[in-house]
Nucleic acid binder design. Structure first.
Lengths: 394, 394
DNA sequence: ATGGAATTGTTTGATGGATGAACTTATGGA
DNA sequence: TCCATAAGTTCATCCATCAAACAATTCCAT
């Protein structure tokens, strides 16, 4: 090894061993981490939780859990509710629940034929939604953003303040910059809207987020209450619109790929040598299962193609469930598409014989992406409560 | 919200808010985290690193970085090398490098026509490889494991002790249990070999790992030195054998899916209504690009099909690079397959126009999976050095 | 040769967060 | 009325990082 030291073209040892490096853990880090852990338990719990229960669930001492809970209370991220009628001996527990006033997530959506805005509070509840129908194709970006600003004001709920804002667009968005690479159905190309979103809502603490419509819709689906106990931590969400997009949720988190362009299922080849696609290739899923093709060829043809593409995704990602969204969720279409896709999965997915893949239609209707965008903001607060706790104390 | 408290069918508040919960961060956690951070910098550095450089790169104080480095030294995970001829003023820096003696990774591979074993030290260097050719199909599992035990002894290198052992098999392996779901080409079905691997090498500190052959080969590829500066943090590794498998590497880590069955590219449909596959479906990639079909139909047909399936994967995962391994890496085949796949990607991948996808053949030959398996063990030590540091002190 | 500048590595006390045990509060039941 | 039980709080202690001063070693200019 010593040889390396005398090698002249080697870089100086002391300079720049790695250009960038992650920040080290310090004592503040463990507090941030534990605050987030506690907050997640409070948010995910089906009923109000006591400080003692939090301590037991995490393994912290009651002293620690209590101190952290008090910090969350002081920051306005959770609230205390009256104790229940005691069922056993001992001092009754005070219940902790996510706050339903204070910081909340604002979600905006621009789609081909409508604009939407949505507010979701820290408990994950949708508090308000507004939509404005109208063709958005080939409009000036500035005008669209002005309209969205109006909607954001209209959707405001008394007692809720924007913690952050997220915009859903039907197109490719670069991560983590939020640059809109292209949204072909809107006629948008290479746009930077983050700064304008920030000005739109300067009081928000979080930086604006921009993301793909299907991705945000998937996020909304991931956090929809499931009455049948089905898993919603890992699934593929396929959104049928003019184009076909997919949002992939893994362990409750959106998978975006290294540059944010993951989930482009619309251009998976399902019919080699098939119809020409506007992307330049032939036989893309979009040419058979996109909205226009769907109307022309009918749902049966779309089901076959969709089944093939979805099976490929499930084989590659190892997913236990698939959700059909967008127009695919419309009852008449879902009645054909759900069984069609389920059949294709049973046939083509390697693990299906011993682990069948569940297929269902989305529970969310229109403006799912706006809801998901608002949810994304709320999830950021859930994941990093320390910023609010610090601010509340200072 | 208070309503919830009086709802009789609600679970008791204090009991079981969440069945399981992650462990909280304690003070030991931050030390473990920082040890791992420092160790990674030392391992990834192209030349010996000084304590001061580590402090600068991480943002820790020199005092902290120094203390942690001393702990790694005491644990035998790194070594100190003599200072270089000083190039500037100031006290010369002592260099820190990964240890080349002590703990090392043992990798085993069982394939259709050979067995292999490999030892990789903490610097990531392959120190020894042994292979034993011979048909392994339909052999008794116990016999095969006995042969592997022999190979593990043969491959031993003086001065290196097993930190752990990993086994690569050509089949589906459940994660994180390590249960072999099925390895059709070996005739194996539903096997539990972890316990036998543990007995094979009882002095190893880490629990035995079992994984898919293509996955481990991908891992080997991810950590191969790249002379051309190409990225190897995110890529798709496609392994052509009797079957066709893929290992997906994201941010330097293997993506296995929630149950460990990700990467099943061999049964993606590439020719609707095509030849029957042994999986029961028709037109799977394997029926055109598997080893037998490859010999029958030639590489040109395989290239077209492979291009389609790989394009689907790249569209879904947003990957900047693809590596062809297994028999696909053989020079004569690669000469056809690499340009063929590259052409298909340029045509079918949505982001290709502004972010071309790199395609190349694997640099590793046979026994790539054994190398990758050994690498996986080494990576575990890199990721969790605290266990060794603690042991070294006690 | 000699002193100053520069850079590495170590020592020392301060800071802050989790811990564990004792303590206070509040309820049900004998 | 007393005691068992459980929730929440207080306080001394531990431990890893930080900050700043200190010691060690080399280059360079005079």
């Amino acid at each position: 090894m010593e040889r390396l030291w005398h090698c002249q073209d080697m870089p100086r040892v002391s300079k720049d061993p790695t250009p960038i490096a992650a920040a080290p853990a310090r004592q503040a880090t463990i507090r941030e981490s534990n605050l987030a852990l506690l907050y997640r338990l409070i948010v995910d719990a089906p009923a109000p939780v006591s400080r003692a229960a939090l301590a037991a669930a995490t393994g912290m001492t009651r002293a620690t859990a209590s101190a952290l809970a008090d910090a969350l209370l002081a920051g306005g991220l959770i609230a205390e509710v009256a104790p229940p009628p005691a069922a056993s001996a001992g001092r009754p527990a005070a219940g902790l629940v996510p706050a339903r006033t204070g910081p909340a997530g604002w979600g905006l959506e621009v789609n081909v034929d409508y604009l939407a805005a949505c507010v979701v509070d820290l408990s994950g509840t949708v508090r308000a939604t507004v939509m404005r129908h109208g063709d958005q194709r080939d409009r000036e970006v500035g005008e669209v953003l002005d309209d969205l600003a109006d909607l954001a004001r209209e959707v405001a709920v008394p007692g809720l303040k924007p913690a952050g804002i997220a915009l859903a667009v039907p197109g490719l968005v670069q991560t983590p910059t939020g640059r809109i690479q292209r949204a072909p159905n809107l006629g948008w190309e290479d746009l930077e809207v983050t700064e304008r979103l920030r000005k739109l809502m300067p009081e928000a603490m979080l930086a604006p987020m921009v993301g793909n419509e299907a991705d945000f819709a998937a996020l909304a689906e991931a956090h929809a209450g499931l009455e049948d106990g089905a898993t919603n931590a890992d699934f593929l969400y396929v959104s049928g619109e003019i184009g076909v997009g997919a949002g992939i949720v893994l362990a409750g988190e959106l998978f975006r790929g290294s540059r944010g362009w993951a989930g482009e299922i619309g251009h998976v080849t399902v019919e080699p040598g098939g119809a020409a696609c506007r992307c330049g290739a032939r036989g893309c899923l979009e040419t058979v299962a996109g909205l226009e093709a769907l109307q022309r060829l009918g749902p049966q043809a779309a089901a076959t193609a969709l089944g093939r593409a979805v099976a490929a995704a499930v084989n590659l990602f190892d997913l236990p469930a698939v959700v059909l969204g967008g127009v695919y969720a419309r009852a008449d279409l879902a009645a054909v598409l759900v069984p069609g896709v389920a059949g294709a999965l049973a046939e083509h997915v390697v693990s299906a014989p011993w682990a069948p893949v569940a297929v269902r239609a989305s529970r969310w209707g229109e403006a799912a992406a706006a809801t998901g965008a608002a949810t994304a903001v709320v999830r950021r607060v859930h994941a990093e409560p320390a910023a609010w706790v610090g601010a509340g104390v200072a």
